[in-house]
Design a protein around this nucleic acid. Structure first.
Ligand SMILES: NC(=O)c1ccc[n+]([C@@H]2O[C@H](COP(=O)([O-])OP(=O)(O)OC[C@H]3O[C@@H](n4cnc5c(N)ncnc54)[C@H](O)[C@@H]3O)[C@@H](O)[C@H]2O)c1
Ligand SMILES: NC(=O)c1ccc[n+]([C@@H]2O[C@H](COP(=O)([O-])OP(=O)(O)OC[C@H]3O[C@@H](n4cnc5c(N)ncnc54)[C@H](O)[C@@H]3O)[C@@H](O)[C@H]2O)c1
Lengths: 232, 232
DNA sequence: GTGCCTTTGTGAAGCAATGCACAAAGTCGA
DNA sequence: TCGACTTTGTGCATTGCTTCACAAAGGCAC
């Protein structure tokens, strides 16, 4: 195993920065495709939709990869960010719950392109098991542990109904998985050391509704109490 | 039109708070279903997966709806949060781009249940137009403006390929929409006053990969320069 | 070389969110 | 009615993130 050489820059990259690195990477890839060789923090920030000082500070957490007076070498920066994010290696992903959403995810080509290989599709419904989706055969959820260990799955996507999510979560953690992407509308309880990220469309819509309401009337109508007819 | 009575509490609810209100609401709904009448900040915070002091501070932005020594009335708090989020009214939502993802969204029952009514499905592909999904017929993207205005659509979900997203975005804004939920992996440029929220699965996976890599070897392998064979 | 110009990298200030800790407010049993 | 107990609501310290502003670094023209 390769020993890490501790350096100032690898200690604690802020979460906010990590969340933006993929954005920079995407913008850089677009530029690379268009043949751009170098880019200034100003232009890259514009493409990523952030403030240029923030971009520079973010990149400074990875190291000093720019050239003053010139900017950043696009290819080099792509490589450095990819390495930092762990995209220079392949990650095996399993999708649990192959319903509406699970199918859409399985059919989506955008994952494989960035080093995320779908290594398994699992479902509890016998009618779904055996279906062939995007070149993979759906396996029974009973196989979860064996699929995870045999195929080296390190990231699990949960797309089951909310009621099944915690149980699935417990099982994949017991099987050694420590990275979970959850689509079910529940707060998953997990031990320390396990990362859960959630995607919750319903919450996103509610946040939009809040702002939409504000825009419409400058704030919620100040009905101080319950509407007529509702008793406390 | 009902005039708003300005009060201390309706000025500027922090974004971080707004983003958590739907979480509290969900936890409260679960409690209401199980017949719980009142709940303490401690218990509600536990159910929502946050710190109880934070929960209390969040709720204090809406008003003083708790009872010291007792807690919060579940039904009353559900009503107050719903009102604050604008969920006491119905929102008409249009989905643009009815591919893998758009179909999954259209088939998903969880939106309607919280006041988000899908009022239109639009796609540019003539093979898709006319399909019947979840009781709605897919219309041609040319109808976008007329669907928005005739059906009072105020929130648009963009589920088209990345290349089409900005154009769709421009059109819906021109049609008067100011709230957009974007699934396409692009940074949408919008004028002030328009809210865009994005859901980017690829970014979520990359963030997970970053942490997974850290867990595996305590940080990225410190290859200071390019890998063998790559020239700068 | 030398000096000008551009752009980075970062100290420091400003701002927002978090979490602690406790006084104030209210309940409830006696 | 009173006193013990519970739990809220919030002042305050702390932490983390953002943004400004500029010195230092480097390229490039002459
Ligand atoms: N479809 C959407 O657009 C959407 C939007 C927001 C949230 N969600 C959430 O995503 C999740 C999936 O949504 P969906 O629309 O695909 O639901 P779905 O009902 O179409 O699919 C769920 C699938 O999970 C399978 N399943 C159930 N229990 C399982 C278990 N224990 N192990 C493995 N598989 C199991 C079911 O057989 C089914 O195939 C839900 O929690 C939903 O709330 C979906
Ligand atoms: N499917 C997923 O799981 C997933 C995951 C992450 C991101 N995304 C993103 O979500 C978007 C949709 O993904 P998908 O898998 O559904 O793609 P898809 O190709 O299956 O569907 C896209 C649909 O948009 C339609 N379309 C194209 N141009 C249009 C226009 N101008 N107006 C209206 N409709 C138009 C197409 O006809 C097609 O039906 C993409 O941007 C994709 O990158 C999808």
């Amino acid at each position: 195993m390769i020993r890490r050489i501790p350096q100032a820059r690898d200690r604690g990259i802020p979460d906010a920065t990590v969340a933006r690195l993929p954005l920079y990477l995407r913008a850089l890839n677009g530029m690379a495709e268009r043949g751009t060789a170098t880019v200034s923090s100003e232009d890259l920030a514009l493409a990523a939709g952030v403030n240029s000082a923030k971009l520079r500070k973010d990149l400074s957490h990875l190291g000093s990869y720019g050239t003053r007076g010139v900017g950043y070498d696009v290819q080099y920066l792509i490589y450095q960010i990819s390495r930092e994010l762990g995209l220079t290696q392949d990650w095996a992903v399993a999708i649990v719950g192959v319903g509406n959403l699970g199918r859409a995810l399985a059919n989506y080509g955008g994952f494989a392109s960035r080093g995320f290989r779908i290594a398994g599709l699992l479902d509890a419904d016998p009618h779904v098991v055996g279906d062939r989706i995007a070149g993979l055969v759906v396996e029974h959820a009973d196989e979860l542990e064996s699929v995870i260990s045999k195929r080296g799955v390190s990231i699990v996507v949960i797309a089951t109904p909310a009621t099944a999510a915690q149980r699935v979560c417990d099982r994949v953690i017991a099987a050694g998985v420590t990275s979970i992407l959850n689509f079910a509308p529940v707060v998953l309880a997990v031990p320390d050391g396990v990362d859960v990220r959630k995607v919750d469309l319903s919450i996103e819509l509610q946040i939009l509704a809040f702002h939409e309401q504000r825009k419409a009337n400058g704030g919620p109508i100040m009905a101080e109490e319950w509407p007529d007819g509702v008793v406390m």
